[in-house]
Simulated assay, not measured.
Amino acid sequence: MSDIHRLTEAMRQFSEERDWARFHDPKSLTLALMGEVGELAELLQWLPAADLDARTREPTLNARLGEEMADVLLYLLRLADVAGVDFSEATATKLQANIARFSVAEHHGRGPSRE
């Protein structure tokens, strides 16, 4: 069993033990996820880009980033579980599609564009 599947099962159990599953419809989970992404973004919002590498390694900020990233991942896993999406499979499939879409030869050192 993968770590993703173990985390998904642990999150399902956490929710069921608290009788929260009834609140976990896809819309509500998506809105909660958006809130957590906002909290993550807020930690970096006003930091100068030139300082980010050093700042994100400072123990206090690094710990807060980890907490918010964990919240984002847990909500994603819960949303996938509720929606019946195999998160491991979907992620692997999407990565393979991105590898095919963004060849090294055409995209090395260049960010993707919407052309």
Rank of each mutant, 00 (worst) to 15 (best):
W46G: 10
V85L: 08
R6C: 05
N62F: 15
K27G: 04
T56C: 15
M69P: 01
D53H: 14
E68A: 05
A100V: 05
V82R: 02
F87V: 02
A21M: 15
G35T: 07
E115A: 12
T93Y: 10
L74C: 09
I4D: 00
D71G: 07
G35A: 13
G84F: 06
D71S: 08
L95A: 09
R22Y: 08
L95N: 07
E115H: 12
D81S: 09
R110M: 05
T30R: 12
V104H: 11
H108L: 11
D71I: 06
L33Y: 11
R22P: 00
F87E: 02
G111Q: 08
M11D: 10
G38W: 03
K94G: 02
A63C: 05
E89W: 08
H5P: 00
M11Y: 09
P59T: 04
L77W: 01
M11G: 01
S103D: 06
V82Q: 00
P26A: 10
D71R: 06
R114T: 10
F87N: 00
D3F: 14
A63F: 15
R64V: 03
P112Y: 01
E106C: 04
E89A: 10
L33S: 06
F87C: 03
G66T: 07
A63T: 11
E39W: 10
R18K: 13
V37R: 04
T30S: 14
D53A: 14
S103W: 07
A21Y: 07
L31W: 13
A49Y: 15
I99D: 10
G84W: 05
A83E: 12
G66Q: 14
A49S: 10
A21W: 10
H107T: 08
A92F: 06
L95S: 05
A90N: 03
E36L: 02
L65G: 03
G109S: 03
E68W: 07
Y75I: 06
V72R: 03
L76G: 05
L76Y: 02
L7W: 12
L29H: 01
V82K: 01
A49R: 15
W20Y: 14
L65P: 00
P48K: 14
A50R: 15
R114H: 12
L40W: 08
R12Q: 10
A10F: 07
T60W: 15
A49P: 04
R57V: 04
T93K: 13
A92T: 05
G35R: 08
V72M: 04
L40P: 00
Q96D: 07
I99V: 12
G84T: 02
G109K: 02
S88H: 06
Q13P: 00
L95D: 04
H108F: 12
G66F: 11
V82E: 01
L73A: 15
E39S: 07
L31K: 07
R55Q: 14
A49L: 14
A10S: 09
L52Y: 11
Q45H: 13
R78K: 06
L33E: 05
A100I: 04
L52V: 11
